[in-house]
Nucleic acid binder design. Sequence first.
RNA 1: GGCGCGUUGGUCAAGGGGUUAAGACGCCUCCCUUUCACGGAGGAAUCACGGGUUCGAAUCCCGUACGUGCUACCA
Length: 505
Amino acid sequence: MRRVRVRFAPSPTGGLHLGGVRTALYNYLFAHRKGGDFVLRIEDTDRTRFVEGAEQYIIDCLDWAGIPPDESPVHGGEYGPYRQSERKEIYRKYAEQLIESGHAYYAFDTPEEIEALREKLRAEGKENLQYGYDSRMLMKNSLTLSVKETQKLISEGAPYVIRVKVEPGITIQFNDIVRGPIEMSTDTVDDKVLLKADGMPTYHLAVVVDDHLMQISHSFRGEEWLPSAPVHVLLYKYLGWEDVMPQWAHLPLILKPDGNGKLSKRDGQRLGFPVFAMEWEDPNLGLIQGFKELGFLPQAFINMLAMLGWNDGSGKELFSLDELVEVFSMERVQSHGAKFDYEKAKWFNHEWIKKMDGAELLPYVLPVLEKEGLDLPDNNKIETIINLVKERCVLLTDFVAQSSFFFKKPDVQLDLISGKWDEKKTEFFKTLSGRWSSHDGWNHDELETSFKSLAGEMQLKPGEVLLPLRVMLVGGKFGPGVFDIALQIGREETLSRINEALSCL
RNA sequence: GGCGCGUUGGUCAAGGGGUUAAGACGCCUCCCUUUCACGGAGGAAUCACGGGUUCGAAUCCCGUACGUGCUACCA
């Protein structure tokens, strides 16, 4: 059986969004499940859309997500180069081979001429022009020109493209792993450009040639490619590679949460959620934050993405990458698009934060805390604190609000307690402060016991003074157990906060 | 317009001829907790519509509607 080789083939044109990462993820999972290879190929044949730094950014995103490729421009491999711009001459060779076998031809019509013709037809109320079987004999190309004229134009340096010559009346059939058998007629497919005037291939030629040369066994891509799949199947046929054509799978789109349509980077801005894996500087929209910057764990991000269009049928939703590799199957991928739900995405993150312990969380939480300029204790203590507060952190950035009072004096919202304040409570806290300053043990149970017994002695319900103590230590009505907090911040700091609050009441 | 793909609760979804049509998110109620969370128990769907096939259809077939994608020398 053929070795499994799959590829993720993005264009380096900007930020890597959800759909792209999910395609990469499914490729990664499939490759690892089958013990195959996961290739990253950079599709940079459109020089006008090339964006500096985008390639490295894509690699960084895959690294952060934990799904690095086995082969890529930077990882190397046996089937390089992995940038299409560096394979330019290869495509020309096959384009010319297609001309020789009569499956392609030179075309000299400029984009302007074609556009003008389209305009004219539109004005006449006719259907828009398809450069294909019906119209190719009306155009300026090596089918309508003599060999001599064609040669002359080429030697004079006239700009030209190479187009496939699609035979009409053929029914193209192939099996799509997620959709089953697909059948389309070549009547509606036009003579796509294979090689552009600048000598670069279009997607259609490049994807077929590269997938074949790189011995790709399964070709996964977005659903938007389905209509042009017949062109690709035809090219495999014309190139004589039909028997080793990869198996196709067209993945469903990720839709915007409101209304319908493909999720775009602007939807994220509009609705207030990330669409990119990591932050990206967009020339028009400015710096756009990614899932990483907004406080997502890569484990949660991947888990959420995997479930957006796939499930194992058991109802289980929380999977680690390794578990996904164990159970992933392309057949169970949904055939219809799914609306992105940011609330659910956050739920995944929350679940992962709860699931991981302080030590595992530390590398992700530490940078967030450090960014705040907090005076942090040693890592062991931070881990303890993480364990104390993690269940109330949905995003990693929530650790700031949920734990900064451990590291510095909070801004105390005295109004939360001042309304029901009286002399008796002042007396209680003064006495408590005195007792705690000379108390032998400084541990959770002893603190709680002495606190409650004092309350009892003074005929106060513990609840009447427990909340005030919380506000004094934390600043507000939130956080883990009060005595846990007192234990962590220590005797001196605890007394200092109590006394400071007392002086303001 | 043409062609393709799709359609189970607000969202993600299981289920593929006979089920009280799972589960999750979100929402609401209650319990736990004298904070906030966590946790626990509940509440809310005639499977887009219309025709078939069948003893029986969310499940199979056809049509319609709606949505969406493509229709570039962009991917």
